[in-house]
Amino acid sequence: MLSIKNLHASIEGTPILRGINLEVKPGEVHAIMGPNGSGKSTLASVLAGREEYEVTEGEVIFMGKNLLELSPEDRAREGVFLAFQYPVEIPGVSSTNFLRTAVNQVREYRGLEALDAVKFLSIMKEKMKLVEIDQKLLSRSLNEGFSGGEKKRNEIFQMAMLEPSLSILDETDSGLDIDALRIVSNGVNQLRSPEKATIVVTHYQRLLDYIVPDFVHVLYNGRIVKSGTKELAMELEEKGYDWIKEEADSTAV
């Protein structure tokens, strides 16, 4: 589904990603872990098409298409979803209007008919249950005045509405208490299917108790320096990142 080869990216001339290789197949959950500043969020942003990052080398193929050539909106329409680490508050844009515009533009791209108001609302109600999100929140401006947990829940709710094939969760767990984490993870797990893949970017192993990954990759200095299964995450939790850094630094040169 997703094939990343030798991906290099920089911001304002500073290289952040220095040769990422990653294969993600349908149905898989990949966790990307790593110390602060290792490039985790950059990888998520580059995949979603954030303009500040310049891809200097490498390629990303998503379902047979060159992802890097697509605009952010077309990536979303093709089925890539980024749950933001810091969802943006947009005063004056109603959550419901925004979602309807998004859903219908995605549908149009996929050659589907636009949803009318009634149909849209009924789908919305159904998906709202997944993340236990309150109707009241959705009648407000997008993310405006939402708590941290409400914002993250809203991300997963949007994900449910847009039905992506590849979801990238960028530190969705940071700042959440255990209850909020449980609700968000429940939502993500219910959306899992054999056709869909998930990349979970996280700093903490805690999230992976709820969203169990098939693979764990450790990012350090812009490269994946270690890959393994969920046991690797446990090891990281126990020992921290220092041993990885030492290992990587000694083999790097």
Binding site: E51, E73, F81, T101, A102, Q105
Partner: peptide, 12 residues
């Protein structure tokens, strides 16, 4: 904010 909306499939 613009990127956020685009990332949800809304044209620029």
């Amino acid at each position: 904010a613009l990127f956020y909306l685009q990332a949800r499939g809304i044209g620029k």
